[in-house]
Simulated assay, not measured.
Amino acid sequence: MTLNLYETLRYFMEAPSVTGFEQQRRERIIEVFSKYCDTVTVDVMGNVIGVLGKGERDVMLAGHYDQLGFMVTHVDKDGFAGFTQVGGWDKRVAYGTRVKVWVGDGPEDYIVGAVAVKAAHLTDAKERDQSPELKDMLLDLGVDSEEEAAKLGVKSGTVCTPYLDVTRLGTKDSDKLIGPAFDDVCCVAGLVKTMEILSKNPPKNIKVHFVATVQEEIGLRGAAIAAYNIMPWAAIATDVTHAVAPGVKPNQVGGIELGKGPVVALGGNFTRALWEMMESEAEKHGIPCQRHGVPARSGTDAWAIQIERGGTICGLISMPNRYMHSPNEVISLKDLENLGSLIAITVQALGESDLQHNVEVYRR
């Protein structure tokens, strides 16, 4: 069985997974994890945990599969829906977005909607210079009354996503992929690449816990619970990170570029011996990688995992991403392949390492 990473990513992304409503994508992740792992479980939060190997040391690999979305708050008498954000939407790109309004739990259980836009011809100069606030936007559902919307299943709590399609940016054989919410399901797909490698060449003395986490977008909640229960000896989180793009200067994003490889994070949220191991293994195996200094909070699952219980050896490998939290994020497929490979060889190196949690440095 040879992994097609592009098709795996598409398969995951075509299923909605708004934070708190991840069930459709969860079923697909379970299906794919089951092809490689010895066991697959779902915990009370909705984290999907695939276990590979029977070693004494538990290593947790985590990427979140929940995504940004909208949630309907009310429907007015004319059938237009007010909504709020789930996660950190940018109001500039929300305005005018076409969405799928999910009225059921199946892949076709949606209606098409759009964030209503006031035509430029009807705006004054002040309106044209700024985007309206999310609280002032409405969804056009294609109906004429609250009753019609209710018959379609649209009510308070209904969630919406941008159109969930993935395609190649530019030519049909381009390495660049474009789609909404690569954050962070692309890294879950990258972990499937890691699974493929480790299932053929298992690490010594390591039990690997592949964790597709939930509720990252509202506070790293799934990762915290998973880490508490797994009690990993070491953990690697994987998430997207900003890359240089039009209007984004290199010094704003640490010079990170698409196509130059996954990104190893350095800073207080991470264990130095582990990030040094990542860079050493990348060099040894000819895997291109970049580094990014993170002086404080990383904003990723690593932030929660590192300090669960008594703390753990912790690292972060990230995917460069242009236009994060927009309907048109852009990543490199080569970067994703290399991310999966770098995590795999790092886990194998951990199996050979003598890293310890607590080192006695003095005894009278």
Rank of each mutant, 00 (worst) to 15 (best):
L3R: 02
Y11R: 05
Q23D: 14
I29G: 07
V32C: 09
T41C: 09
G46W: 04
I49V: 14
G55D: 01
R57E: 05
D58W: 00
G63F: 00
H64D: 01
D66S: 10
V72K: 04
T73H: 10
D78N: 12
T84S: 13
T84I: 05
G88N: 13
G96R: 09
E108K: 14
D109Q: 08
A116H: 03
L122C: 13
L122V: 12
K135F: 11
D140G: 06
L141G: 06
V143D: 01
G153E: 05
S156L: 10
G157K: 07
T161L: 08
P162L: 01
Y163M: 12
L164F: 09
D165G: 06
D173W: 09
P180V: 04
C187N: 07
V188L: 08
L191A: 02
K193W: 08
K200R: 15
P203E: 08
A212K: 02
T213Q: 13
V214C: 07
E217K: 08
A223I: 03
A224W: 11
I225F: 15
P232S: 15
A234G: 15
A235C: 15
I236H: 02
V240T: 11
P246M: 14
G254L: 05
I256P: 07
W275G: 04
E276D: 15
M277S: 07
K284S: 11
I313G: 00
C314H: 08
G315V: 07
N328K: 14
E329T: 10
N338M: 08
T346R: 06
V359C: 12
R364W: 11
